[in-house]
Structures are given as structure tokens and as C-alpha cells.
Design a protein around this nucleic acid. Structure first.
Lengths: 119, 119
DNA sequence: GTATTAAGACTACAGCAGTAATCTAACTTT
DNA sequence: AAAGTTAGATTACTGCTGTAGTCTTAATAC
């Protein structure tokens, strides 16, 4: 039953890097990222420990890392959680709120309609 | 600068009750709620302590409680956080994902368009 | 071959969240 | 008045999160 893997907020930036580019070393992950290097190492280790990231040994001293949890899985899980928590699971409530509060225009929605048509 | 009040997930059910009906006593809040009563008391107290709920003394032994943080404020804050965290702040990404994954139909969107028109 | 670098492991620690038991004192019931 | 009830306060404890320092050891540089 694929026990739920939770990705903490602070771990997310690392996942985002791995969703962009897979099978890379830790220096490659951290390169360009902000934050304390030791902290980043801890977060990467935690992701590996909880199974969100796979570490493949290169040599006795280093690994290549890959995302196990995909971006889609993550987004799906977050979306469902958010929908349930904030809007009691009502898609309609949610959509209405977004459209109202995030200033989504008629045009935006029409563009969206077109995109739907195309499938 | 109105320091951010964070409402934890477990505290949310209590807020939801208070958003429905304000200025009520704790037994009125807890009545109908599930969960251990002692836990609920703790959560209510934490909400008061952090200023999300106001307690007005009735007598030396009890209070009436009211939401200080409104549902709109809460939803707004959660929505912004979610949008930023999961979709890097892109409304378009988010909308597209919702429409695709939550099976939102052409009809739903058209209904939404109508609602927007009416304002 | 010795010194340096650095990837990963280990340790640490405070704060928050979830959960809940116990204590205290005031109000209510008999 | 004594006993029971109970709102709220206090205490507790675990796990997760955010953050980061230190240790170990293999690879590398000189």
C-alpha cells in the first residue's frame, strides 16, 4: 500500500533540482542552491532515508542521486491534501476562490477551455 | 506588521466551528466534534495563546470564544503558500494542473465564466 | 608518501505539532 | 454542607522539521 512518503518544505528545493536533472552527484545538486551546505547534506540524506530519493553508489565515497517520488506524484498529493484541508474537498469552492482571489480573467479561462478542447 | 499566525492542521476543525458560529463556549465548540476532549482543549488553548481565537471571560470559570483570524484570511494565506510552494507562484501552472487532474469539465469552466460576468 | 579536500555519516538541538493525562478550583446537585 | 462535575491550566512526551557542527575516510594534489 505504498506508505505515504512526506516531503518537507525544506527538502523540496532538492527534489526540484532532481526533477529537473536526474542521476547527478550531490555537488551537482547543491551547485547553485542557496543555504548552508551541511544543512543541504542533511536534507538530502533524509530524502534518501525516507525513500524519496535513490542513491546509486559511484565508488566507496560518493553516489549519484535520482528522484523516486516524481513531481507529478508530489503535486497530486499536495493538491489533494490542500483541496481537502482548505476546501473540504470541494473543487467548485476551490476554483471559485482561486478565480476570484487570484484575479483570473475571462481570457485566462477561455484559453484554458481551448487547451481542454485540444485533447 | 501583523506577525503571521499559523493555524496547525489539527487546530483547523476548531476554527471551522468558530467560523460557523461565533462567541460560543468550549462545550459548544466541542459538541459534535470528534477526538479526545483533552486534546481538543489543548488545541483551543493554543489557538487562544497564539491569538487566532479570542477568549472573553463569562465568569471565573469559563469563556466565550471567537475567531480572530477569519476564514478568508486563512484561506488566502493557505492559497498563497500552496501556490508558491507547489507551483512556484504560477497561477497558470496551477489552474492547468487542477483542470487536468481534477477532471474539471468545459461546463464547469463555463459556469465559472458566467459567475465572473455577474460581478 | 604526505597533506589536503570533501562526500557522506553522525550528532545535536530547539521549536512545533499531535496527542493526552492529571491537577485545580469553581459551579451544581443532592 | 458534602459530593460530583467540569472548564481551564499544567505537564508530558514523541516525532518531525529546520538548521548546522563535527567526524571519518577515501580520493586527490603536490
Amino acid at each position: 500500500m505504498d506508505k505515504k512518503i512526506n516531503i518537507a518544505d525544506s527538502e523540496l528545493p532538492i527534489m526540484k533540482v532532481l526533477w529537473e536533472k536526474d542521476n547527478i552527484t550531490s555537488p551537482e545538486i547543491f551547485d547553485g542552491m542557496s543555504g548552508n551546505i551541511s544543512t543541504l547534506k542533511t536534507l538530502l540524506k533524509r530524502l534518501v532515508d525516507k525513500g524519496a530519493v535513490k542513491a546509486t553508489e559511484i565508488n566507496s565515497r560518493s553516489y549519484r542521486y535520482s528522484a523516486v517520488v516524481s513531481e507529478d506524484e508530489y503535486i497530486c498529493s499536495e493538491r489533494k491534501g490542500f483541496l481537502q484541508k482548505v476546501f473540504d474537498g470541494s473543487k467548485e469552492k476551490m476554483l471559485l476562490n482561486f478565480v476570484k482571489e487570484e484575479n483570473i480573467t475571462k481570457d485566462d479561462l477561455e484559453k484554458l477551455l481551448e487547451m481542454i478542447e485540444e485533447e
